[in-house]
């Protein structure tokens, strides 16, 4: 399958197969006028199968959130049809207003104007804990 290469934009590569729609939704790509290509289940030597998103526009991406959804994603910035920068993501140490604490005893359950803050407490297991009540949240699953 051939997809036109983009001139100025962003390619999100090495997306775990099946996760591309989730990312498409989060980034609000459905509201954009530019060309967006979602390639699902592309062949990958490293991963077997992967998803790719090509965006024919330059956006300010929140890399922390992308890293939380899928830390293995590679973000390629394209300028004049050439890759000018490659960014490898990792689990962000802190998430603000990305996920919500579900503990009914947490202060954020009643004071809803508070930022929802989570800290990465176990990078190996991808465990985040609410900064207020320390309730546990594993990465990705609940997004």
């Amino acid at each position: 399958m051939n997809i036109d290469s983009i001139k100025n934009g962003i390619v999100l590569d090495h997306i775990k197969a099946g996760k591309s729609m989730q990312i498409y939704k989060y980034l609000g790509l459905d509201d954009m006028d530019c060309s967006v290509a979602i390639i699902k289940n592309a062949h990958s030597n490293k991963m077997g199968k992967k998803d790719i998103i090509k965006i024919d526009d330059t956006l300010n991406l929140n890399l922390d959130v992308l890293g939380y959804i899928d830390p293995d994603i590679t973000v390629c910035y394209i300028k004049d049809s050439k890759i000018v920068e490659k960014r490898h993501l990792e689990l962000p140490s802190r998430l603000v207003n990305v996920i919500r604490c579900k503990n009914p005893r947490c202060i954020t359950s009643t004071d809803t104007d508070l930022d929802q803050i989570f800290r990465l407490t176990d990078p190996e297991q991808g465990v985040y804990r609410c900064a207020y009540c320390e309730s546990r949240k594993s990465s990705q699953k609940d997004y």
Partner: peptide
């Protein structure tokens, strides 16, 4: 002192 967990942390912010 507060019955909700994390209230003092919220205050400290």
């Amino acid at each position: 002192r507060h019955p909700k967990e994390g209230a003092p942390y919220a205050a400290s912010l």
